[in-house]
Every structure is written in C-alpha cells, then in structure tokens.
C-alpha cells in the first residue's frame, strides 16, 4: 500500500472517530452521577446510574413537551406531505414557466432568515389570540415542511421513467390513477426519505419554537435548552440524558435517509 493511501485512511478513521466518540461519550455521561462526571480526568469506568434518565423522563414539563413535539411535528409533516408531494409531481412532470417559478419559489422560502419569520408571526398569533398554541406552531412549521417536501420530491418524481407512465396511459389509466398507482409507488423510497427529512428539520427546530411559545406549546428542544438553567450549577448529567433522548428520533430515521440518498444518486447515474 502506498504511503498516501495510508495517510488518507488515517484521516478517514479520525473523521469517523470524531463522529462516534463524542456521541458515545455523551451516552456514557448520561449514566454518570455528578461525582463521576465533574472530574478533571474523564472517567471511562464507573457504576452507571439511571437517575438522570429517570429525572428527565419523569418531569411533567418533559412529558408535555414530548406530546407537543409529537403532535406539532407529525401534523406539520403530514400536511406538508399532503400538499407538497402532489405539487412536486406536477412540477416534475409538467415543465413550463409556471412550474419552474413555483419550484424556485418553494426553494426561496428557505432564503428567509428564521428570525424574520418569527417576529411577524409572533405579532400575528398574538393578534389572533393563538400565541403559544400548538396550532400556531403547526401552521408556522408548514412553511418549512411544504417547501422542503416539494423541493426534495421533485427529483424523486423526475427519476420515474417517462416510458412507464406512457405505458400506463396506453393501458387507459387516468392521470390520477397514474399518479397513485404508478408514479408514487415507484418513487416511494425517496419520497419517504424526503418526508423523514422534513420531520427531522421541524423536530430539531429551535428559534421559531422559542419565540412562538412561552409555556403551553413548548417543544422538546426548548425544554432541553432550559435544563442548563436549573439552579446555579449546570446539571450536566441530566443535560446529557436529555441530549440522548432528544437525538433518538432523528437517529432512528437515519437508515431511511441514507437509503433515500443512495437511491437518489444511484438511479441518476444509471439513467445518464
């Protein structure tokens, strides 16, 4: 083996460790007592305790935030998919000026700085008496979910071969049947990963949730960030436990995202 290859492999291993080690370390820290955690020389061996997890899981604020997060995120994502996936199909299949502009418009929503959305949204929801409600966050999050679902589903539908749809039409399938029975099933893996991605985006969302909620509709990231302000000392063990729990849903969706990315790139190269 050449020296350069060896060095490159070393670099890759280092990069891989840079991902694995901090996460494993956080997982370990979540099961340490403060006496084991707050030491000058990091401890690798210790007696694990369930106290931190117990504390986080049994707090009423966490339970409420979990319910909020689940309801808000899944509603916004479901609505985003319901509106976004059919729209993406039209943009992918009917190429003209209107659909091109629509595609760019969906993308350009991402150009908006979140704080520029949060401030007026706050005034609007205050005015409507819906401030700090789940509904207000669901509607606000639809800006994110609809546009990202459109944006990521367009390439998925573009990769459905035109010939298959032509064949469906020859078999006297109507345009709606073609969409539901042909295009959607063929593109389903990438569409699912697009929807999963939009779920992760809103699950992780912080700034809008922080500015648009004060107590009732708080989501999990806000609660997690508030745990650093409990009392005088930062409760690092509890924080680590909260970090682990908050990170679980995105990590569960990892496989789906990975598979979606693989199919996105592989099919494209196969077609070219």
């Amino acid at each position: 083996m050449k020296l350069s290859t060896l060095l490159l492999r070393l670099l890759l291993i280092l990069a891989g460790l840079l991902v694995v080690l901090p996460l494993l370390w956080t997982l370990l820290n979540a099961f340490k007592t403060n006496a084991d955690l707050l030491v000058s020389t990091p401890k690798l061996f210790f007696t694990p305790v369930w106290d931190n997890m117990d504390y986080v899981l049994n707090r009423r604020s966490v339970a409420r935030a979990l319910v909020n997060s689940l309801i808000i995120c899944s509603s916004a994502v479901a609505l985003g998919a319901l509106l976004g996936v059919p729209a993406a199909y039209v943009i992918a299949r009917y190429k003209n000026r209107v659909t091109r502009e629509a595609q760019f418009f969906a993308l350009s929503l991402r150009f908006l700085p979140p704080v520029a959305v949060a401030i007026p949204m706050m005034v609007i929801w205050l005015g409507l008496g819906l401030y700090d409600s789940r509904l207000s966050l669901i509607v606000t999050y639809m800006t994110i979910t609809v546009s990202i679902t459109i944006w990521l589903s367009i390439p998925a539908f573009e990769r459905v071969p035109m010939a298959v749809e032509e064949a469906a039409r020859v078999d006297r399938l109507g345009p709606y049947a073609t969409f539901f029975l042909i295009a959607l099933p063929i593109a389903r893996l990438q569409i699912l990963s697009a929807i999963a991605f939009s779920f992760i985006l809103v699950w992780n969302e912080f700034l809008l949730a922080m500015m648009l909620t004060t107590s009732r509709a708080k989501t999990l990231p806000i609660i997690a960030s508030e745990m650093s302000q409990l009392g005088m000392n930062v409760p690092w063990g509890i924080l680590n436990a909260a970090v682990v729990l908050l990170s679980l849903p995105p990590l569960i969706l990892l496989a789906l995202i990975g598979a979606g990315m693989n199919s996105a790139f592989s099919r494209k190269s196969a077609q070219d």
């Binding site: 992760i200 992780n204 997690a224 960030s225 990170s247 990590l251």
Partner: peptide, 8 residues
C-alpha cells in the same frame, strides 16, 4: 449522523 442531530 451529525447533521441529523438537533443543533441544540
């Protein structure tokens, strides 16, 4: 993995 983690 890192990009999927909540930034918090």
């Amino acid at each position: 993995i890192p990009v999927l983690l909540p930034r918090v």
